[in-house]
């Protein structure tokens, strides 16, 4: 029973981190219909940001996520300004191709600048601490990251649903021309959405170095899972992404323990196929 609970806790904690990474992607995807292939590499850049702040200035990831969130907002906005802007209104594939190039670029620039070494912050406030209740172990770094993720997701959701900006975003997502007629500066909305998407993954990446090593390839699997989660939840649906991410986390954890670790991602990807067979537009899609 304790093992069962432990597996569940691990799954949920991981799932929440996936959710934050996926929320950024979902936002961009839902509003602009753009597949950002460099999303995993955004995460990697954010992790490096947080790592270097920690290594050079001695600031802990519990604080430096603010900087990496802001930095990734910038990167996201720049991506839009310099690349995506030119692909809007063209086939979705061209944006995918461009971001594939961007992914390659970011990965190798980091490799060039920071060397391919695995880097880990050895002394962090949270590092290695655990809370144990009734035999179930909660690793503190994961717990804090997961809770942070939950807070950010709720904030983003609130912003999209309840603020004027959010309404503008929704309007733009539904019908760009109509939104423009209503006086919404869609160009700025796109810029903002891309920035916000970057911020989400930036915050996630900012928190991760308190337990995960940074290297140029670290974003790969996160990026892949984010794709699957966003599609599974239904494009553009933040609750969908959250729910799907938790599901992915749990399936990963349970199949990893009860079937075999090597099959855990097989189970995750199979789950996606299963879900879209039943609901071709994702769990919360319409």
């Amino acid at each position: 029973m304790i093992v069962f609970l432990q597996v569940m806790v691990n799954g949920i904690l991981n799932g929440l981190v996936y959710a934050l990474v996926a929320t950024g992607l979902s936002l961009i995807w839902g509003v602009m219909d753009v597949i950002n292939f460099a999303h995993g590499d955004y995460l990697m850049v954010a992790m490096y940001t947080s790592f270097w702040i920690g290594a050079l200035l001695g600031v802990d990831p519990v604080l430096s996520w603010i900087v990496s969130g802001a930095f990734l907002f910038l990167i996201g906005a720049l991506t839009y300004k310099l690349i995506i802007r030119y692909t809007v209104g063209r086939s979705a594939i061209s944006a995918l191709l461009a971001t594939f190039g961007l992914s390659m670029f970011l990965k190798n620039v980091c490799l060039y600048l920071f060397s391919p070494n695995f880097r880990l912050l050895s002394k962090t406030v949270l590092g290695g601490k655990t809370i144990e209740t009734g035999g179930v172990i909660f690793p503190v770094p994961q717990l804090v990251t997961a809770l942070g993720a939950l807070v950010v997701i709720v904030l983003v959701y609130y912003m999209v649903k309840k603020t004027r900006l959010g309404w503008a975003i929704q309007a733009t997502a539904m019908d760009k021309e109509a939104a423009e007629l209503m006086g919404i500066d869609t160009e700025r909305i796109y810029l903002l959405v891309f920035g916000l998407g970057g911020s989400c993954v930036g915050i996630a990446g900012g928190l991760l170095p308190s337990y995960l090593a940074v290297h140029p390839e670290v974003g790969l699997l996160f990026g892949l899972l984010a794709f699957v989660i966003v599609a599974m939840g239904g494009f553009g649906s933040i609750p969908g992404a959250l729910f799907a991410a938790l599901l992915v986390g749990l399936v990963e954890s349970f199949s990893g323990f009860f079937i075999a670790p090597v099959f855990k991602y097989v189970a995750v990807f199979a789950l996606y196929l299963l879900v879209v067979m039943v609901r071709p537009k994702g769990l919360f899609g319409w």
Partner: peptide, 18 residues
Amino acid sequence: GGVDLIIFGLLIILVVVK
């Protein structure tokens, strides 16, 4: 240091954008 891949990535972006 992946200089070739940096350039390759940039060129792909350039082709798509242009």
